[in-house]
């Protein structure tokens, strides 16, 4: 029972960072109908950026977030302009999968050349401090990570719901043709939407780097987990991404705590299969076009 509750606490606290990554992923899908297989690689790349800032200049990873988000926003816009926009409409969804996979490989190759393939971790002064509440361990890092992820999610939702540009994005998600007729420039929305998605990955990357050790190959792990979350919640729905992250993260933490850490990787696949059997479009997904 103790292990179960400890697992639950851990799962909820780590759900924040996954919710953040998955929101970026689902936003990109909503705007462009592109599944970004490079999202995991972009998270790891920004973890490395935060690592570089920390080891060279002593910048705390959480303070580095503004820098990494801006850098990754620019990278995201560049990827969209260079590789995704030239694709033809008729086979865009099929080709964009492969193109983003190639981008992921490119980033992985770049990271292995620059930082070698050994595991890196960001060891801040507070990395090992923790509280014990009623016999349960809560590490400071995880609590920070959770709060910061919630804050970043809040910023993203504010951008989408309270700004003119956010309204243009939401309109594009709901109905691209009507949005275009009403004067939304779809090319610009696509580029900036993609950039916003990768900027979200950047914020998540700094937090991820604090929580776990990483190497250039870590993105494979991350992307399969991330994709299960997004499919679970329903592609294109941010609320779905958050709920999906909670489910996947708590259940795998509980399995790790009660059965064996080796099998926690399997948990999300079992959940994914169950969801596909019962509700192929995901928890929050619609069969038609969704809304964010």
């Amino acid at each position: 029972m103790h292990a179960l509750i400890q697992g639950l606490i851990l799962g909820v606290l780590t759900a924040g960072v996954y919710a953040l990554m998955a929101s970026g992923q689902t936003l990109i899908f909503g705007v462009m109908k592109v599944v970004n297989l490079a999202q995991g690689a972009m998270v790891i790349l920004s973890a490395y950026l935060a690592y570089g800032l920390f080891t060279s200049f002593g910048v705390d990873p959480l303070l580095a977030i503004p820098v990494t988000t801006v850098a990754m926003f620019i990278l995201g816009v560049a990827v969209q302009l260079a590789f995704l926009r030239p694709l033809h409409d008729e086979d865009r969804s099929e080709l964009s999968l492969l193109v983003t996979f190639a981008v992921a490989l490119l980033i992985e190759g770049f990271m292995s050349v620059t930082w070698r393939t050994t595991d890196r971790s960001i060891n801040t002064s507070y990395a090992n401090s923790s509280w014990s509440v009623g016999g349960y361990q809560i590490t400071l890092v995880r609590l920070w990570a959770f709060l910061l992820s919630i804050a970043a999610l809040g910023v993203l939702l504010l951008l989408l719901n309270r700004t003119r540009f956010g309204r243009a994005i939401r309109a594009t998600v709901q109905n691209p043709e009507s949005a275009r007729l009403l004067g939304v420039e779809s090319n610009r929305v696509s580029a900036i939407g993609f950039g916003l998605g990768t900027a979200t990955a950047a914020a998540a990357g700094s937090i991820y780097g604090l929580l776990y050790p990483f190497n250039p190959g870590s993105h494979y792990d991350l992307i399969s987990r991330l994709l299960s979350i997004v499919v679970l919640g329903g592609l294109g729905s941010i609320a779905g991404a958050i709920v999906g992250a909670l489910i996947v993260s708590t259940s795998s933490a509980v399995v790790a705590a009660t059965i064996s850490p080796a099998w926690s990787e399997m948990t999300f696949f079992v959940i994914l299969i169950l969801v596909l059997l019962l509700r192929p479009q995901g928890i929050f997904g619609t069969t038609g076009r969704g809304a964010i």
Binding site: F29, K33, V35, L37, S93, E94, L97, Y220, D221, I223, S224, L227, S228, V230, V231, L235, E265, M266, F268, F269, L272, L276, P280
Partner: peptide, 14 residues
């Protein structure tokens, strides 16, 4: 299409 690709790549890692 897209979701199928996701499910199969997940299968690979599993």
């Amino acid at each position: 299409a897209d979701v199928f690709a996701i499910v199969t790549i997940t299968l690979l890692f599993v």
